[in-house]
Design a protein around this nucleic acid. Structure first.
Length: 162
DNA sequence: GCCAACGTTGGC
DNA sequence: GCCAACGTTGGC
């Protein structure tokens, strides 16, 4: 998939678990994107994420869902350590160190932004067909086109001028 | 907490 | 390898 339209990524996180502020406060503003347990999302990280790809940091399953940070991919894919941790909710007994099933990439937050809500996104013509706006979409990592990414950055810029 | 949408599982 | 049942996601 992905192909030529892949320019950036939208990556979802539940703020109660990993918020954009929490990530920004970490060393190098960076966190390993652990806990992805969906094959399609995993494959994006494993096969298509490149260091320095732009990332839209998205808060999901919370009172105020939306894009809350501009970030970037800061590593290539490597095994997600939580799959081996029996105490973790992400533990996967079927995964082995020799043949890990799940991977993660590092994500570095560059800038915390005023939240871009789903209504905001829907109001940006270039973003109308973003995957995150599609009903029933549950993919935690989705590709974002250059057009969509730039429209969002523009929207954020304009908002800050006002 | 509802519920639509979708992914995964497992019996056959 | 089909497909029903089940579990999860996530906005509202």
């Amino acid at each position: 998939m992905a192909g030529k339209d892949k320019f950036a990524w939208l990556m979802k996180s539940e703020p109660s678990e990993v918020s954009v502020q929490y990530t920004y406060n970490r060393p190098k503003h960076t966190i390993g994107w652990f806990g992805v347990r969906n094959y399609q999302a995993r494959n994006f990280m494993r096969d298509d994420c490149r260091i320095a790809d732009p990332v839209l940091f998205y808060h999901s399953s919370c009172p105020e869902p939306g894009i809350v940070g501009l970030a970037e991919v800061a590593s290539s894919a490597y095994p997600d350590p939580t799959q081996f941790d029996v105490k973790s909710q992400y533990y996967d007994p079927k995964s082995t160190k020799e043949n890990p099933r799940w991977v993660q990439v590092d994500v570095k937050v560059n800038k915390i932004i005023d939240r871009v809500s789903l209504d905001d996104l829907r109001a940006i013509p270039a973003c109308a067909d973003m995957l995150v706006l599609r009903k029933g979409n549950r993919l935690s990592i989705t590709p974002v086109t250059e057009k969509q990414y730039k429209a969002i950055v523009n929207f954020v810029k304009k908002k800050n001028e006002n």
